[in-house]
Design a protein around this nucleic acid. Structure first.
Lengths: 137, 137, 137, 137
DNA sequence: GTGGTCTAGACCACC
DNA sequence: GTGGTCTAGACCACG
């Protein structure tokens, strides 16, 4: 599960993929030399057009984040950035969390509710991961 | 200055304005009854077209965040009334949280760390609210 | 032809389109899942700008009347879900009725006549609905 | 009560006044030589700007529907149209009713509910008329 | 091909 | 002065 698309964010789908691949690379989730999902597999996974995935990959390649080898797929390049320090990674997440907090405030959802909602969604996320894994076994 | 535009984010400019006005309202930077910058003034400030600002404001009005009075300007509405049912509101927030969870996963931040980061940001947010309130009293 | 514009009515063109699409949906002229004319096609038909049609469609989408799928077009949504509470809905209708009552007053039509006229028009409306249904079966 | 404004219809306020005065004249509600409310009285009644009423009256005068005599007010001209036959008047009202019916359908309000809502609003209207009269006594 | 966004500039309605 | 609507035309994202 390398990417998750929010179709209502207004951000172009291909850019969402680009950013999430970069994030995964920056954190060490995927490492130099690791293969990325094939264009058609990812497109099917995310239920988007193959062109969109292809565009994201081509963007990543032009930025030298990944490397595509004809006939065998796309791989994370080693040249790139070393994994970010933990403080930096937390900082990035904090920005995203702040946006959620503002939204919660606007929807009149209390701090306590927000926290329990987070727990709930974390459990759902872990469950989806398990399901996904067993599907591929 | 109520908004700062990132022209390279890929997110539509008018949506960036919408979100930043909502954030400003949520954090207490602007308060019910306060006037927003005029369409022309904000457009000039941000170096964007009048129509783009107008579109953002019209979106905000249709979501009942602001009230526009022809000939006199746009004003922040009394928050309070979110006309959506609670289930709907939680649902929207869940989407936003899911995106954060995925990002945390990419950045290899554990569930426990994510939860404590949320608590930390909530406290920071409440503090900012207090500060704005006391400044304006 | 899903809409006819009256350029002299003073009502914004995009609102005329919105209302006529709603009317067409309500009367069964178009049905859930049906595609609407493309933005470009309708604009050309009505001899108005593409943006004006786009604005009407975007308004309709934000009211959940239609669904737009980028790259493939706009489609009428399954009606059913009016997310507004009943009180709100009656309230809106009351405003519209009040306007009719005032007009009846101006035209010196008695309350009893107005009521029987309503019954008459309701029957005509139901008949139109039936006709459209049987045509499309 | 010569006019009632719908601020959400999108139709310019001054045009709404023009149309309603014409309707009242067409039906005989007001007759040639009858005085219209003064600009400032009507503006106060409808809670709109005096300029807006003035503009409506000036439009009516340029169409020779009314006549303004300096210092004494505005009066309905006699030249104009003879009161419309009843069938014509009912026809006009039918159009307005059809729009309400479509809206009711869209808001999922049943025929029976619509009919009882009409009765309710008629009663409210008559009550307002009484109140208004007693205020002026 | 589809819809979405933005700009530039005009004109209208209202205070 | 305020916001609202419309046009013309460019470019982007997506299927």
């Amino acid at each position: 599960m390398i990417a998750r698309i929010d179709f209502h964010s207004g951000m172009p789908v291909y850019l969402q993929i680009v950013q999430q691949v970069k994030a995964a690379a920056a954190s060490g989730l995927i490492r130099p030399g690791d293969p990325l999902p094939s264009v058609r597999a990812l497109a099917e996974d995310l239920r988007i057009n193959r062109n969109t995935v292809a565009r994201a990959y081509s963007e990543l390649e032009s930025e030298s984040v990944i490397e595509t080898r004809q006939g065998s797929g796309c791989f994370l390049k080693d040249g790139g950035a070393s994994p970010l320090r933990k403080a930096v990674r937390s900082g990035r997440l904090a920005e995203a969390l702040d946006a959620v907090i503002v939204q919660a405030h606007h929807l009149q959802i209390s701090d306590a509710e927000l926290q329990s909602l987070l727990v709930e969604r974390l459990e759902a996320f872990r469950q989806r991961q398990k399901d996904h894994q067993s599907l591929q076994d």
